[in-house]
Simulated scan of single mutants.
Amino acid sequence: MIVHKKLANGFEYIEIKNSAAEAKIALQGAHIFHYKRADEEQILWLSEVSDFEYGKAIRGGVPICWPWFGFNENKNLPQHGFARVSMWEFIKSDESDEKSSSLIFRLTHGSQTLKMWRYKFELELHVTISDKLTMELKTTNLDCESFVLTQALHTYFKVSHISHALIKGLDKKPYLDALTWKNEIQEGDITFNQEVDRVYQEVTDEIILRDENREIHIKNSGSSSTVVWNPWIEKTLRMSAMNENAYEHMLCIESANAFDDRKVLKPQSSYTIKAVIF
Rank of each mutant, 00 (worst) to 15 (best):
I2S: 09
I2G: 09
V3M: 09
K5R: 11
G10P: 03
Y13C: 13
S19C: 06
A20Q: 03
E22H: 08
A23R: 10
L27P: 05
L27S: 12
F33W: 02
R37K: 13
I43L: 15
L44M: 05
S47A: 11
E48V: 09
D51L: 12
F52S: 15
E53V: 15
G55Y: 12
K56F: 08
V62D: 02
C65M: 08
G70V: 13
N74E: 14
K75R: 15
H80K: 12
A83N: 01
S86V: 05
I91H: 10
I91A: 10
K92Y: 12
S96Q: 13
K99T: 11
S111I: 08
Q112I: 09
T113W: 14
L114I: 11
F121T: 02
L125Q: 08
L125D: 03
L125P: 00
L133V: 06
T134G: 07
M135S: 04
E136P: 04
L149M: 09
T150E: 11
V159P: 00
S160H: 15
H161V: 00
G169F: 15
L170K: 05
L179C: 08
D189I: 01
I190K: 00
N193V: 04
E195K: 01
R198L: 05
R198M: 02
V199H: 01
V199R: 00
Y200C: 14
Q201M: 12
E202N: 10
I208G: 00
R210L: 04
D211W: 02
E212N: 09
H217K: 05
K219C: 11
N220W: 09
S221Q: 11
S221W: 06
G222V: 04
G222S: 06
S225F: 07
W229D: 01
N230L: 00
N230S: 07
P231E: 02
I233G: 04
I233Q: 04
R238H: 05
M239S: 02
E244V: 10
E244T: 09
N245I: 08
N245C: 07
E248V: 01
C252P: 00
S255H: 12
A256V: 09
D261I: 02
V264N: 08
P267D: 11
S269T: 09
Y271M: 04
K274T: 13
V276E: 10
I277S: 01
